[in-house]
Nucleic acid binder design. Structure first.
Lengths: 234, 234
DNA sequence: TGCGTTATCTTAACGGCGTCAAGTTTCAAG
DNA sequence: CTTGAAACTTGACGCCGTTAAGATAACGCA
């Protein structure tokens, strides 16, 4: 099950960078953040413990690469969800929130590294760009749901530039609900509620829609502007 | 500033358990979860690396003790907040959510250990009891806000018993908002927004009330039963 | 094709980590 | 004072991340 590329030549791996990232994500899922080890990842990739240094510098570099992947994946899935919602006529804001949750559940390793206050290289340019874009999508869809104008540079603007923004409360609220529910699920806070027929899938199927409906109601309550179709999620 | 007890007799410490917990929380705040080390805690407590074993078993035992403290502290602060809200006539549900946030910000080390999916002893009886009580308070206040009956054993009932509860969506929603905002703050996701005059305090002062108002509006939207005074927070 | 340069990977070693076994010191009950 | 239990130290083990130095493979260029 792990034939992969597997040190095929002998000395040179071929694509160690990619192999390390894949191994790291597997370890993160299997053993959690605590049991995560650079040497273990190197072992799975079939190379010596010192090999990854050239590609990532150090452990932080590897985690930063994974976090960047996480944000990119998040952005991509949210944009896909927006496109689908647009086509099907359902609510766009709820769609990106559900995509956010889906990404967290599908790749919890990436998600935790991206958001989990492990020491990342915060000044890494790629990481910053990826994080800013994901945040921009959230801003764009929240403003749109409120019926407000969206700046053209929304996907590249610095988050700090939203300091006094009129819609910041709604943005923070939407993000809080979505991030909170996602993290509680992948961190096991809701594990007792998953211990029943259907498990996690059923819990999410039952309540995700209702949470979205409440979220949309909350956002709508601050504006007086009714949202597109807040009841289409349930 | 750290005279503490400091190995006063020589061989016997006197209250190593407490000293270790205090040292651990200090390390957690200073260096984060990543830089947390049992040996470092022992060093600060003025004791050999093997000394803590007798009190906590191992690292996981120490973290479990800290997590238990975190849940107990959380419960206590929420109950205090409820009492104050009761006296002043403000909303009880908003009060416990604000207390939740305040605890996360005041003792982020404890909070992260309690909720952070480091490997804890999940079958530790004290930890379970503390976590169940904190959850029970949340359930109690959410049901009360909805105008629904609250069982007498709400502070000791297993969370799994709420699997099919009629108010579970509201409970999850309230918890998600509060937990999400708290974790995003202490994990630095909102750091860019704190980079301005007033910093974190001002950000919270500006938006905490508005988030609470939205939260109450969302909960109210599902019931048709108006809450006590949803607008008293803002 | 052959050669030198460079990127890639290995080996060996360092100090620090968590944990255990065995020994030492203190405490406290009788 | 004696004696057994509790608290702590010492020393060692294997694993960790990282580094320096050396080995090997790939590639540009003649």
């Amino acid at each position: 099950m792990d034939e992969k590329v597997g040190k095929r030549g002998g000395y040179h791996h071929g694509d160690l960078r990619q192999a390390m990232i894949e191994a790291a994500e597997a370890v993160l899922v299997e053993k959690g953040v605590g049991g995560f080890t650079l040497r273990e990842c190197a072992r799975r990739a079939g190379v010596s413990p010192a090999a990854p240094a050239h590609h990532f510098g150090n452990l932080v570099g590897l985690l930063t690469a994974i976090a960047t992947l996480g944000f990119d994946d998040l952005s991509q899935e949210m944009e896909t969800a927006v496109a689908k919602a647009q086509a099907s006529g359902s609510d766009r804001l709820a769609a990106i929130c559900e995509a956010y949750l889906a990404v967290a559940l599908a790749t919890p390793g990436r998600f935790r590294v991206a958001f989990g206050r492990l020491g990342l290289k915060n000044n890494d340019e790629e990481l910053r760009r990826a994080a800013i874009r994901a945040f921009g999508i959230l801003v764009r869809e929240t403003k749109r749901a409120l019926g407000h104008a969206v700046d053209a540079d929304v996907l590249t603007r610095l988050p700090s530039s939203y300091a006094g923004d009129a819609d910041l409360a709604e943005i923070l609220f939407v993000w809080s609900v979505t991030h909170g529910f996602s993290t509680m699920l992948i961190d096991g806070q809701l594990a007792p509620l998953e211990m029943q027929p259907g498990g996690r899938e059923r819990l999410i199927a039952l309540y995700s829609g209702r949470l979205m409906a409440m979220l949309l109601a909350a956002v709508a309550s601050t504006a007086g502007v009714p949202l597109a179709n807040p009841a289409s999620h349930g």
